[in-house]
Design a binder for these strands. Structure first.
Lengths: 209, 209
DNA sequence: ACCTGAACACCGTTCAAGT
DNA sequence: ACCTGAACACCGTTCAAGT
């Protein structure tokens, strides 16, 4: 059974296979991927540097979003950015813990942060406000992503003993929408905060006539 | 060299040793802990169920906070809760990725969430508002903790090419305080949002006279 | 009860050797 | 260039056997 002369492997194929395994089983292993692709383990290392490289490739797959929807008011642009980032995680919740443990090197993702900073900067935010805003939006998206990827056991009802939290969960009738609605509200609070930041930035600018 | 009849090992000792290694090197291994404690590997399993058990033990050590500072207005109680939770992570940034990947089973931590829900519930928040509020505060603390534990590479200056984000970071003069100040502002925004939630909860209550 | 030493079934990674 | 097969240095976990 000779191998086809067409190359079997590619970085993209390896990344997609790993992401699929991650989605289905919550983890992946180099031997698993090799087996799935019908090759032995070592040729994989001809295409990727190692496990960390594969994880960064997966990050790139997930964050591959459509376009920088420009020409929007900054509030909407920031909201779209955050929603997009969170949704890219939401589609692959099982991948989140693995990604979150690893430093971002994937250029496309770094570019996304850059474009967020540009949106704010162009809107007139001071340097300090840009840094604080990006930090908060980053925490929002990562925190919400974790809530999706490994939701706290606190949200699952245990009939052991009545508690304030359990009662709230039972009565809230939010169901599966809990994480989504919390994200939406959280995002709107941050945008309101950014609006205030911008106002005081513009005020102190006029102080220097 | 006979072993002392005094027991050498204990769950607490194992947890502390593992946390110390985690703090120093960013990871730990069962053989490493055994070696550090001067025993072989297997007796560890006489005290802990396995690696996951050790991680939960570490979570318990970290979250072991002083007291439920009651008798505070709910805004301050919530702020103290969040600060306490975040700070407990901040002291052990290297442990965060490992903890965040694992479901919480440690009872003391679950109790903390419970006490947060009780604060809100007692203050008059509706069930829905309690669930949304706890979700947001959870995301805030976890997101900020990750920012501390594995800060994005975006915050490190690379002289490659000028960018909106790099310029902002260079000019912001926030330095090491970036994560701290972002957390503080973020927290105040959420508390402002909770205040609004409570207002509408109380309004709709009076609608039913 | 608490320990030792050895074993098991895995990892990720590398390397000589084939076509 | 791309693959095979085997090896290496590790893991986490278990178990018979000692005291």
């Amino acid at each position: 059974m000779p191998r086809p002369s067409q190359p079997i492997l590619s970085r993209d194929l390896i990344f997609r296979t790993a992401l699929a395994k991650l989605d289905r089983t919550g983890g992946f292993t180099i031997p698993e991927i090799a087996h799935k692709l019908g090759v032995s383990v070592s040729p994989l290392y001809h295409h990727v540097k190692g496990r960390a490289d594969i994880l960064e490739g997966i990050r790139g797959l997930m964050a591959d979003w459509d376009a920088t929807t420009t020409d929007l008011p900054w509030q909407e642009a920031v909201a779209a950015w955050a929603r997009n980032y969170r949704d890219s995680f939401a589609k692959h919740p099982a991948a989140i813990p693995a990604l979150v443990a690893q430093t971002i090197t994937e250029q496309s993702v770094l570019n996304q942060y850059e474009s967020l900073a540009a949106i704010l900067s162009d809107a007139g935010f001071s340097s300090r406000s840009v840094v604080l805003s990006v930090s908060m939006i980053d925490a929002l998206c990562l925190g919400s992503a974790l809530d999706l990827g490994a939701p706290s056991t606190i949200w699952q009802r245990s009939d052991e003993h009545r508690s304030a939290l359990q009662n709230a969960v039972d009565n809230a009738t939010l169901g599966d929408d809990r994480a989504e609605q919390a994200f939406q509200l959280h995002l709107s609070l941050i945008i309101a905060g950014l609006t205030d930041l911008l106002s005081s930035d513009l005020e102190s600018e006029t102080t220097v006539p």
